[in-house]
Structure formats: structure tokens, C-alpha cells
Design a protein around this nucleic acid. Structure first.
Length: 132
RNA sequence: ACUACAAGCUGCUCUAUCGCGGGUUUGAGUAAAUCAAACAUGAGGAAAGUCCGAACAACGCAGAGCAUUGCACCAUCUAACGGAUGGGGUUUUCUUUUGCCUUGGUAAAAGAAAAAACAGAAAGUGUCGCAGAAAAUAACCGCUUCUAAUUUAUUAGGAGUAAGGGUGAAAAUGUGUGGUAAGAGCACACGGUUAUUGUUGGUAACAACAGUAGUGGAUAAACCUUGCGAGUUGAAAUGUCACGUAUACCAGCAUGGAUUCUUCGGAGUCCGAAGAGUUGCUCGCUCAAUGUUGGAGGGUAGGCAGAUAGAGCCAACGGGUGACUGUUGGUCUAGAUAAAUGGUAGAGGCUUCUUCGGGAGUACAGGAUUCGGCUUAUAGGCUUGUAGUUGUU
RNA sequence: GGGGAGAUAUCCAAGCGGCUCAAAGGAACCUGACUGUAAAUCAGGCGUUUAAUUACUUCGGGGGUUCGAUUCCCUCUCGCCCCA
């Protein structure tokens, strides 16, 4: 893999407005214990075709330590596999907003999350393809 | 030595590689934005709960009272505290000794340990179910006496009496003696207990001794009283920049308004006195409408400041029983904002299991303005103390 | 980050420190009556146990105050609401 597996601030979905829009126009794909909300918008000055955010509910893991750990694991999986996603999108004008949510009740390790994430990506493309 | 309990301390390490946050330097860029590289750096003892106390900020402030609310043995420590340290008394538990008896209880003394929101019930009000004569101005039974009646020991009525009475969590200061019609702190002796005065010791709480006056049930985590304290709201506070707007709103300044009469100085009548603001309330204080000047509602959800060197940490030498503190010297980069400190691979500690190959585990837990405490959660290790068991001398 | 109010039977919920608080009331559930059957209606039951009007435990968990606590106080746990 020649490209660097970095994760810059611009790739993070930060704007409250964008997040509000995402939840309003959301479409979702699930692959237990993960679920992803996605929505397409016009790109505004960002050089990345994707903006993503990670979330774990306080109801599932009460301790902040566990929530942070699962968010970091999800971030790590996204970072290591993001180029496959970018190649498939390959668009100059559109931006894909994502919200990756952990919905499982039990804690998971890196290997299982990676496996489920790849499965989830296949499902996501199957859903996006006919629309674009 | 092991086990248990209590208190205190500690809170796994390293390498490679791919990443993240803010910082410094260098380079690219006219500059800014931005990008790249290098360098060092990046969670806790509880960061948690939000139970207290402060710093800091905004608002309010002529001030006073009430309400509300917190604290409560004494001294000390501290910026402060409901925290800590030391002390005092109290209660509970255990042990020993002595006395008593129905041989496992009870009473006293001494010692040890532990606990606690330990001011006041002798200022007032309330409450104290059931049971019991009676639950706080105790006469139901009983005891004593007087009167009347008669069947001559009983009935009825009056008076006195808290020694006795199945209850109850609690029954009117315990024991003994005197005393009396019967009784009673009615009197006396020895005690208990409360208030108070004096002396001695102690900074004080308090203790010991002596005197005086009492003997007033419990409950204040019931109302309350006394003493001391608290203005309210909290970083989503607050300031500022950007974006973006009409005449309801706010602030400053000026003048009460309408009407009648008029000698143009003023006078009369009506309206506004109810409401709004000011800390929860009251008093008090300010305001009303119009004109003018300035700001700005809704909305938006962006940047910067607040925001990281401080009641800081470490060491030595002093002071203090101790909490703590004085002097001197040294030391110092977490500052995010849909929120950084992570992933993978390997090695080593430690604990534990073992078929001796190896396997399993490595806690509680993640900054969000910052400190001081308290409470709660914690694998393993270390230190000290107490108790028990075993072994050796 | 800050603040507020709460937890009672399967569910929704009342409940002055005591008695008649094993705890009002409603729904649900169980049994019986009525009916050919069901619904509706009526009667009884509805913590465990007992021959019983018996015994025991109990109002989120733990501790305290009190003679006595669902109630008062402290603490822990859980879920809920509000504030830009």
C-alpha cells in the first residue's frame, strides 16, 4: 500500500450542522455489532471524499474507558482500510458523510471489528451503487 | 514462617512499525492560510461520585428586618471547610477481679478495643399506638381513718396515702433506719444524678475535693431556642471578533400628562398610585408617557480569550506529640472541543495453574476552568501494628 | 459541565413515625357462578408458609436516629427531567 494511512482533522465529521443533516437524511447499514449512517452532500473545500465520525452509546458502556476504546478501535479500522473506500467513490464533487456507531452489547477486540467492518463496507457499496 | 484484619505507600516495563493532539525549530509560500520534515512531549490515585469548602467571573448592592438554610464538646492546623490533628467526657463490646444467687445471669471496680451530626428537654409547644389504674397537673385496686346504716363485719359516702399491684421501650432518685392512723426525701446515713459556688490541676473542654440548692420521664436525624455563618448564579459563567437585521425591547439625557380659569406669577379639577425593576419576602429605593441619542430581538452554532506556574512538586536543615509549618536550594511544557494519548507484532517482569512442554491472568478506571478535602471502586507488590496457628532457641 | 425531582405487589399507583400497614385503589392474572362456549357481569383469591385469625420475610441495597422507620438522616445503586 503506497499511500499513507493517515487520518487528518479534515476527514473527521465535526460540524454540528453537517451532523444534524446526516441524522435528518440518514440511510443506514448494519453489520452487528456495527451500524453506519450515511448521507451524500456537496463537497465544500475538503480534499477528502469522506467525512466520518464515531460513536458509542453511554447506555451500552457506562465507563468512559470502554467507550473511548471502542471509538479508537473503529477509527483504527477505518484508517487502515480507507483507501479501498476512496478508490471506489472516486468523485470530485460529492462528499460522503458517515457516522459509525457501535451497537453491540458485549465488548469486542480489534480482529472481530475489522472483520465486521469489511463486511459492512460491501453492504454499503451495494446500497450506494444503484443510486450513483 | 503462615493466615486474617486494620492503617499507610505503590499503581508493570521495553523494542519495532502504522497513526493522533497541541508545542518548538527549519523549509516551501511576498505574507497569511496551509503543507512538509525534525525534535522533545502528551491521563489518575482515585481523573469517578458531585457530598462539602475555596479561587475566578457575571449580576445585585443607601441600607435594615424577616424568611430560608448550614454548622454545633475543647484546643490547634488551614486560604477555607461540614476536612484534618491532638485532647476531653459518653456509650457499646471484650477480658480480669470481687460480691450475690435458681451455674449463667446480675452488680461494682480495673484494663483494652471500637463507635458517634457529643449545644439546649431545668424557655415553650407537640407526640408517646397496643397493653396498663395511670404515659406526665399520676388515686382504678389496695392501705389507713372518719361518718352513716344495719345483718357487727359488710355496704355507701368523705378524707389521707405513691409502700404493693399481671402491663410496657419507659411507671416518678436506689438501699437502710427513723417516723406515721397508714404512708411519703417527711427526716437522717451512704450512694446515683442535675444546676451552681469556691479551691486545686489544665490554654480549654474537663477532672478531683468541699459547700449550697434540687430530684424536673423520653423525643430536637418533631417544631423550636441559643451561638456562629451564608447575597444569587455558575465556565453551557463571562468578555470579544466575525456573520446578519427592524423600530416591539433596553440604556443615557430632557420634560409629569390632559383640561379649565388667569392679574401669565400661578390656582383648581381629572388622570397616573396600581404595576414594573431591585436577591425569596417586607420596608425602603428607582421607574411610568413623550421626544432625542445610542445599543440591539429573532436567528446563527463559527473563531479567539477565559484555559493552564500553582494556597505547585522535591530535598536538606529547623519548630511542633501531631495535622502542619519556617528557611534555603532545586525543579517545572496534557490543554482537547462530535473532543488527542491508540492499533498490530514481539520480548521481559509479577501472580497463578501445570501432564514441567507450556497455558491463563496482569485491577479499578480516561483529563474538560483550577485547587483543598470527603465518599465510593481497585489485580498484584511493599511497610507497620494487632490476633491466631505451627516450629526453633 | 451544572441543576432538579424520584424508586412501593406483574403493571399503573395511594400511603400523619405505631393500631385496622402484608401495605388503599385500578388494571392484569387465577378459581368458581352464570352460558352450549366465550365476552360482559357477580363472588372469592392474588409475598412464602400453616389446620388456623399461625409463623416468617417485606416498600431499590447498606448503615444510623428512635421503645418502634415504607415514612426522619447519611451513603451507595439505578432510571428520569431541565439548562447553551
Amino acid at each position: 500500500m503506497s499511500l499513507p494511512n493517515t487520518f487528518s482533522k479534515e476527514e473527521r465529521l465535526k460540524s454540528r450542522k453537517q451532523i444534524g443533516l446526516l441524522f435528518k437524511n440518514r440511510q443506514s447499514v448494519g453489520s452487528y455489532p456495527l451500524r453506519i449512517f450515511w448521507a451524500e452532500t456537496e463537497r465544500e473545500a475538503s480534499k477528502y471524499p469522506v467525512a466520518i465520525s464515531f460513536s458509542v452509546s453511554k447506555r451500552i458502556f457506562k465507563q468512559a474507558v470502554k467507550r473511548n476504546r471502542h471509538k479508537r478501535l473503529m477509527l483504527e479500522v477505518f484508517r487502515l482500510h480507507k483507501h479501498e473506500l476512496y478508490e471506489k467513490l472516486n468523485s470530485e464533487t460529492k462528499q460522503l458523510n458517515l457516522m459509525l456507531i457501535y451497537v453491540g452489547k458485549e465488548p469486542a477486540d480489534f480482529a472481530t471489528i475489522e472483520k465486521k467492518y469489511l463486511k459492512l463496507m460491501d453492504k454499503l457499496f451495494a446500497q450506494i451503487a444503484p443510486q450513483t
